[in-house]
Amino acid sequence: MRILQVAPNHETVPPHRDGGTERVIYELSKGLADKGHEVILFAPSESHIPGTVIPYPFWGDDSIGSYVMENLPPNIDIIHDHTFDSAISRVGVNAPLVHTIHLPVFNSVHFPIYVSKSARETIGGGYGFDVHNGIVPEEFEFSYEKEDYLLFMGRVVREKGILEAMNLAEMTGQRLIIAGPLHDEELFYSEISPRLKRNSLLQFVGPVGGRIRQDLLKNAKCLLFPIQWAEPFGLVLVEAMACGTPVLALAKGAVPEILGPFPEMMCDSVKEMAEKLYYYQAPYRPDQLRYHVEEQFSVSQMVEGYLALYQLAISEYGG
């Protein structure tokens, strides 16, 4: 097939550092190419995939729909829209079209694909389809040995539970490394920065990628995921487990789907998380976590899921 992928216009594909959606788009594009499909990607400049990249000559998502239509390559079999507002749905494209809804937002589109069953039910009202995000486990270094620090990795915003993660570290007197981009500077400078200055056990390292990101995930004794919203997926949970690193997460959104076989890593409250952290012992072996990722969240499974939905959309479009 000749497959067109349309990425948001905020971060390169793959991302230099943080960017879960962009990592998924890259791995999907590579997986499709590995199966012999031709992949064309609209994405920010400096993006690259095993295929053709058409760079956006502007910043932001507002003009994506019109730009894609004005520069639409010929003979496209399917268009896969990953933009956060499903921009291609509003420009009247004459081709089979599917949309992955990466954020917890409702976009009124004909063929929505959510990244978890939970998101399809809570955001889409049960309408549409779902395909879990996938990773290449072999690209994540595995380790039985862990160092004595907790890890928070994600966007620095309230809904990701950054304040709760800091509370947990302070309540239990443990070291916490915070890694992620500042998406709420007011929150950082008014509430987070003063606490960093008061407590040397709290360390902010900013957005990370490459070796630094790999080492943080591989060596943490526990990843904290005290989310304050219905997380549509939670890719960092999968990445941590691929490294053999246990997690503690609030059981919201897609968390029970991802951590289903490991109930001891899910909590109903921050208080329960703190109780588990006081005398923390990893509840599962690192190799159990790695095996779960290999069996349930591989790129190959994600690619097969999307290919099946591409065929369905093409068949439906053809009548």
Rank of each mutant, 00 (worst) to 15 (best):
Y280N: 07
A220L: 01
F111Y: 15
T172A: 04
E138Q: 11
G210I: 04
E191L: 12
E295L: 14
H10I: 11
N94D: 15
H183S: 01
F106S: 08
G60E: 02
I113T: 11
I314R: 14
D62G: 04
V53Y: 08
E46A: 13
L224W: 06
S200C: 06
R213M: 12
C243P: 05
V293Q: 08
E139Q: 10
F297M: 07
H110C: 09
C222G: 06
F152R: 10
N219K: 15
Q296R: 15
I113G: 05
H99K: 04
C243W: 02
P232D: 07
V299M: 10
G36D: 13
I54Q: 06
D81A: 06
F84R: 10
G134Q: 04
R195L: 11
N133K: 01
M171H: 03
P74V: 06
F233M: 04
N199P: 01
G124Q: 12
G209C: 11
Y144H: 12
S200P: 11
F225T: 06
P263L: 09
I25G: 08
A87S: 10
A43L: 13
F129I: 09
L201C: 02
N71E: 13
D34Y: 06
P286C: 03
K30T: 10
F233R: 01
R17I: 00
Y149G: 06
L217P: 12
Y189V: 04
M1A: 14
S63E: 14
N199Q: 05
I227H: 09
V270P: 02
Y67N: 08
V208N: 08
L163E: 11
Y310I: 00
P194T: 10
I40M: 09
D18T: 09
D85E: 08
I64Q: 12
L168Q: 00
L202M: 05
V98R: 08
F204W: 08
A87K: 14
L235Y: 04
A274P: 06
V299F: 11
G31M: 11
S300R: 14
D130I: 03
I88R: 06
V105D: 11
M266D: 07
E185Q: 09
G65I: 07
C243T: 03
Y284H: 12
S86M: 05
M153T: 01
